[in-house]
Deep mutational scan, measured.
Amino acid sequence: SKTSNTIRVFLPNKQRTVVNVRNGMSLHDCLMKALKVRG
């Protein structure tokens, strides 16, 4: 089974995003990807 960790990230202006960290990806990469999608 694939394991994925879901991390809630609290952003300024009362924004919130959820990042799924996959195996083999660093938290930083996942964060940058999530913020790019939002931006």
Rank of each mutant, 00 (worst) to 15 (best):
R38G: 01
H28S: 07
V37A: 09
G39A: 09
N13T: 15
C30Y: 08
L27Q: 00
N13K: 05
V21L: 09
R22G: 11
T17N: 01
L31A: 07
V19L: 13
T3I: 08
A34S: 05
T3A: 15
H28D: 11
N13Y: 05
N13H: 03
I7L: 13
A34E: 01
N5G: 07
L35V: 04
A34T: 05
V37G: 04
N5H: 12
P12R: 00
M25R: 08
N20D: 09
L31T: 07
N13D: 09
N5Y: 09
N23Y: 13
H28C: 04
T6V: 15
T6P: 08
G39V: 11
V19F: 13
K33E: 01
I7D: 07
K14E: 05
K33D: 02
V9M: 03
V9E: 01
T6K: 08
K36T: 06
K36M: 15
Q15K: 02
S26N: 11
R22D: 04
D29E: 03
M32K: 08
I7F: 04
F10H: 15
K36S: 07
V19I: 11
S4C: 10
K14I: 07
C30S: 10
L27R: 00
P12T: 04
L11M: 14
S26C: 13
R22F: 02
N20K: 13
T6S: 11
V37W: 12
F10L: 09
R22H: 12
H28R: 10
Q15H: 02
L11R: 01
H28L: 08
K36Q: 09
V21G: 13
Q15L: 05
I7P: 02
S4T: 12
T17F: 07
N20T: 04
V18G: 03
V21F: 07
T6M: 08
L11P: 00
I7N: 00
V19G: 02
S4V: 07
P12M: 07
S4R: 11
Q15R: 01
V9L: 02
D29Y: 14
F10C: 13
G39S: 13
V9K: 07
M25I: 06
L35A: 07
F10V: 03
G24C: 14
